[in-house]
Computed example of a mutant assay.
Amino acid sequence: MTNQTLTVGKNAVTFKSFGVDLAGDLYLPEGFDPSKTYKAIVGASPFPQVKEQIPATYGPEMAARGFIYLGFDYLGMGDSPALPGEFKQSRYNFRLIENTWDAVSYLGTLPFVEEIYGLGVCQGGATIASAAVTDHRIKKIALVSGMMAADAFQWTDRDMANQVITASNASMQKMCETGEPDYVAPFGLNDEMSREEFVSAAAYPAMAGETYDYYGRDGVKGPVAVPNYTNMHIGDQPMQSLFSIGEAYADKIVQPTLTIYGTSASTAICSTAFVAKLTNEHEELAFDEFGHVDFYYKPEAVKASTDAAAEFFNR
């Protein structure tokens, strides 16, 4: 139970995970009354985001629809510390799941929380789906532009996947031997590149422009707009992110599930292949007019996804 005085809108909070304090923002709806109970959402953001990106967009939107929303910086990201002896920008897949479980535990200590739901975007979709497999405190999940079934996206070009693994292995070895962090640009996008430089060299040309428009130096939520954010990341991260836990355990998920995606997105297969493996009560909402990154910030796409999630959670 928290002793903190909470007010309508954004509240800075912390909660324990792996023995350290993770930094979060708790969004409360208009007219919030601590003597009443509310439906709460744990939000999960795309790789390699911080709470000032997707959570800062979806938090106010879901609060405006009457929900409590928790967005937070995962271990080693943003305002959350790395573990002693480890390095910042080290967002590891399996730890994301445990951080999410601890976020659910935190929400469960709040006396005004009635039920807890999960809302994940991009990699956050995989995180929420994976966390929900064995955390039935999460009563429903909504997944937007989710990377739940990533095998077809990440492993179809086996040679490229193996090149990524080789580089990741080398990064881990280098850090062990030097004791220093080895930072890389996972998308090939660093904090200084222009849009033209990135698009011309991008490994995924179909998504390059929209990726830069959000994450790039001049992007709406890039390192200039969000000082707490960097595109650079610890180089051994793919050793975990290439495992697709949500896909492997889709048939074990019991919570009602809503999957939202854009049919034109190159990542649509990550949603459709996941839905095909679900055996629970589930719904699929596809938009022809939106791409993958549109759901991150474009008003019409965010409204479509948050309206749908709110209606789904309120049933």
Rank of each mutant, 00 (worst) to 15 (best):
G24M: 06
A152E: 14
L258H: 02
D191C: 05
Y261I: 10
P238G: 11
L83V: 11
C270D: 09
V113C: 02
G19A: 12
Y183G: 07
A273F: 11
S194I: 12
L96E: 15
F287M: 07
A23L: 04
S130H: 04
H233D: 09
G71P: 06
N93T: 04
M172R: 15
E289L: 14
D251P: 01
A167K: 15
T259V: 15
E30P: 00
A268P: 04
Q154H: 15
L70F: 08
S271F: 05
K16A: 15
V50P: 10
G108W: 04
Y214P: 01
T263E: 12
D213E: 09
S130Y: 06
P46Y: 11
N228L: 10
H292V: 08
Q53D: 07
S145C: 12
E192G: 10
G209D: 08
Q163C: 03
G78Y: 12
A149D: 08
P181S: 09
S171V: 06
T7I: 13
T279H: 09
A203Y: 10
V199F: 06
E289H: 09
S90K: 05
G124D: 06
Q89V: 11
V20L: 04
R158E: 15
S271A: 15
M148G: 03
E52T: 05
S264L: 14
D288C: 10
T109E: 01
R315A: 12
P223L: 12
V113T: 05
D288Y: 12
V254T: 15
A103R: 00
P227R: 07
L278N: 00
R195A: 11
Y214Q: 00
V199G: 01
I245E: 01
D21S: 14
D213M: 09
S244P: 00
P60W: 05
F287N: 04
D294K: 07
K298I: 14
Y297M: 08
V199P: 02
A268L: 11
Y204F: 12
N228V: 06
G66N: 00
D294T: 12
M148R: 04
A308I: 14
G291Q: 14
D25A: 06
D288V: 11
P205T: 07
S130R: 06
M193V: 14
E300P: 00
A40R: 00
A201E: 08
P111M: 08
D25F: 06
Q49V: 09
D288S: 14
S244D: 00
S266M: 04
N11I: 13
C270W: 02
L28T: 03
L107M: 02
I260C: 07
V8M: 09
A248K: 13
A308T: 07
F290S: 03
E114G: 03
G246C: 04
T7G: 11
A206C: 05
D151R: 09
M1F: 08
Y297P: 02
D73W: 07
G24F: 01
Y229N: 14
R195W: 04
E52D: 13
S266T: 10
D294Q: 12
T5M: 05
V104D: 02
A129Q: 07
A12W: 07
L242Y: 13
S171R: 01
G125Q: 06
S45K: 11
Q154D: 15
E180H: 13
S35W: 04
